[in-house]
Structure formats: structure tokens, C-alpha cells
């Protein structure tokens, strides 16, 4: 059987990371490819952050967002977590012939509203239409550039640092999965899809030197981000399950479908590794913004299991948080 691209190669898990590391980075230039949320480039005296992301989500519209707002906010966040000030976005669309013009218009309006909210401009783009069946209604690629303001001086992660999340875990991934499996809600569960640049700026203004690392835990979720941080390092990332903020509805869906919220996608959260002494200050600073009102300190960097992420459970036991091979599927066992 010749090797084939599988759905898992796009899941944010090990299958994807291995392919990127070996095939893509190996072929396109190990010295030029920067494996981070955005690439940092120096042009003349300016340092800019440059990123790109493609969105293929179905359903196109879900509680709390749509493919348009997801595309804008996702790209703004990939710039913001690099400590950059997001400025300009591109918008490349691939549309399957037969899509209602009204649907396309609705998505564009949503993109414009999201861009205005985040204070960025969509300045360029491209439109392609493919034959029926060659795309699933519409795919959107957004690239973005932002200015590095020099406010955030990254320092290496070290033992004793604290792990912080800007709000409830798993909202987006679980809201979409509930929709797909026709689960409904008494009150509701929304995707957390939102731009984080103003919250991050609010935090970095007050604590420029105490943030070691930032990343938005999208595909693969919080657990995958922690695995990326500790991979090949002498330290480990320890979570405390009791401290992880989870909405009741997210727990409910995860129990029914047998999936783990720590691996579900978030589209409006940031994971930060910060110095121990400023952890509470940074958390409180986040809580001053609407995007960060549920921010929490959920763990710390330890030396117990080098290169691994793990978690202390409510009963006082421990479990390793491995990097999953590919995406989670509803299971019965």
C-alpha cells in the first residue's frame, strides 16, 4: 500500500507533526521554515511577524461563530501570541460552484466585522471556483502580517514557571462536535472564537519580561501545546485537573462522546508559560478583559518527567498526557 495522506495528517497530532518536521520542513528548507505560530522576519530596521492558516470547517456556521470570523480571529491570534501587533490580512477563498451567493456574502460580512473588532484591515486576496465536489462549499486561507513592538522579550522556559490559560478549555471543538452529533443544550454552548490581540497587549504592557511562551491551543488542544513545549526538553509540564476551567456543557458532551477536552480545539484562548512570581498578577490582568475573565493558573513546569506533559487527577493520582496520533472520534469504549 503506497503511503497516503490520511485525515490524521491534518489533526494537530503526532502524524501531522512528524510529516511537517520531516517531509515539509525537510523539503522546503530546514533553515528557512520557522515552526511557530508566525515566522519572525527582519526587513530593514523592522521586525515583522508573518503567518498563514487555512479553514475548512463544516458546518460553515456554528454556535458562536462561522468560517469567516474563525479565519480572521485565528490569524490575528497567531500574530498576537508572537507578541506582534496584528495589522494586515489577506483572504484567499476556494469556492465550490453552486454555493449560494448569499452564504458567501454572509461569510464576508462576518469577516469584515471580525477584522474591525480586531482593528486589522483585509488588504489583498484571491478567489477561485472549483467544480462541484472538488471542495466542500468553501475553504478560506488567511495570511497576516504584524509589527513586533519589542514589548515582549521571550526568555527560555524553566522549572518553577507557571502554566496559565486565558479561559475555559475546549469550547470550540466541543461545540462543533456536539453540533455534528446532534446534541442540543438547555442553555447552550458557544464556540469561543474571538480575537485575543487586545487582551494580550493589555497583559504584555504590564508584564513585558515575565512571559516565557505564548500559543493559541487550536487543533490538538491544550495537551498538544504542552507536548510541543516540553518536547526534547529536560523539564516537564504538570497540570492540576482540579484547576482546569471547564464549562459543565463541555464536560457533558465529552462524557457522552468519550472524548477528552484537553485535546479539543480552542479558537479564543491562549496558553502562557510565565514566571512564578508574576503568575497571579498576569492572571488578574487577563481577568480585567472580557476575553480573559475566566483566566486561571492550571499548572507548572517541573522536572519530574523530562519531555512529557502530565496531570494530577482529583483523586491525587497522576496521568501522562501523550501527544495523540490524530484527531479524537466519538467512541463507546
Amino acid at each position: 500500500m503506497t503511503r497516503k495522506i490520511l485525515s490524521g495528517h491534518g489533526s494537530g497530532g503526532k502524524l501531522m507533526n512528524d510529516m511537517i518536521e520531516t517531509l515539509i520542513k525537510g523539503t522546503l528548507g530546514p533553515d528557512s521554515i520557522q515552526l511557530d505560530d508566525s515566522a519572525l522576519l527582519t526587513i530593514g530596521a523592522e521586525t515583522i511577524a508573518f503567518t498563514t492558516d487555512t479553514f475548512t470547517i463544516t458546518p460553515l456556521f456554528f454556535p458562536g461563530g462561522d468560517i469567516g470570523s474563525l479565519a480572521v480571529n485565528g490569524t490575528v491570534n497567531d500574530l498576537a501570541v508572537m507578541g506582534a501587533e496584528p495589522m494586515y490580512l489577506s483572504c484567499g477563498v476556494i469556492i465550490e460552484e453552486g454555493l449560494d451567493m448569499e452564504v458567501f456574502e454572509k461569510i464576508l460580512k462576518s469577516m469584515k466585522a471580525a477584522a474591525d473588532r480586531a482593528g486589522v484591515k483585509i488588504v489583498t486576496g484571491d478567489t477561485k471556483v472549483v467544480q462541484k465536489g472538488n471542495a466542500d462549499k468553501i475553504f478560506i486561507n488567511t495570511s497576516g502580517v504584524g509589527r513586533i513592538t519589542g514589548r515582549v522579550q521571550r526568555a527560555p522556559v524553566r522549572e518553577g514557571d507557571k502554566i496559565l490559560i486565558s479561559g475555559c478549555i475546549g469550547d470550540h471543538g466541543i461545540a462543533v462536535m456536539a453540533e455534528r452529533n446532534s446534541l442540543t443544550f438547555t442553555k447552550g454552548l458557544q464556540s469561543d472564537c474571538m480575537a485575543l490581540n487586545s487582551m494580550i497587549a493589555h497583559v504584555t504592557e504590564a508584564y513585558p519580561g515575565s512571559i516565557r511562551f505564548m500559543r493559541d491551543p487550536t487543533r490538538g488542544g491544550v495537551a498538544s501545546v504542552l507536548n510541543e513545549i516540553v518536547k526534547g526538553q529536560p523539564f516537564s509540564a504538570k497540570l492540576y485537573e482540579n484547576d482546569c476551567p471547564l464549562r459543565e456543557e463541555v464536560k457533558g458532551v465529552c462524557e457522552i462522546l468519550g472524548i477528552d477536552p484537553l485535546y479539543a480545539a480552542n479558537e479564543g484562548k491562549v496558553v502562557m508559560i510565565v514566571s512564578a512570581e508574576d503568575a497571579e498578577g498576569i492572571r488578574d490582568r487577563m481577568r480585567e478583559t472580557p476575553e480573559g475573565k475566566d483566566a486561571a493558573i492550571i499548572g507548572e513546569i517541573t522536572g519530574e518527567y523530562p519531555g512529557k506533559a502530565y496531570m494530577e487527577t482529583p483523586v491525587g493520582g497522576e496521568r501522562i498526557l501523550p501527544l495523540l496520533l490524530d484527531e479524537q472520534l466519538p467512541r463507546i469504549c
Binding site: T313, V315, G316, E318, R319
Partner: peptide
């Protein structure tokens, strides 16, 4: 899975 996930296996 649950002995592992609850951490009881480590107790």
C-alpha cells in the same frame, strides 16, 4: 482507560 485517566492506577 479509566484506571489510567483517573490516576488510580498510580495509587
Amino acid at each position: 482507560t479509566e484506571f489510567f485517566k483517573t490516576g488510580v492506577k498510580k495509587l
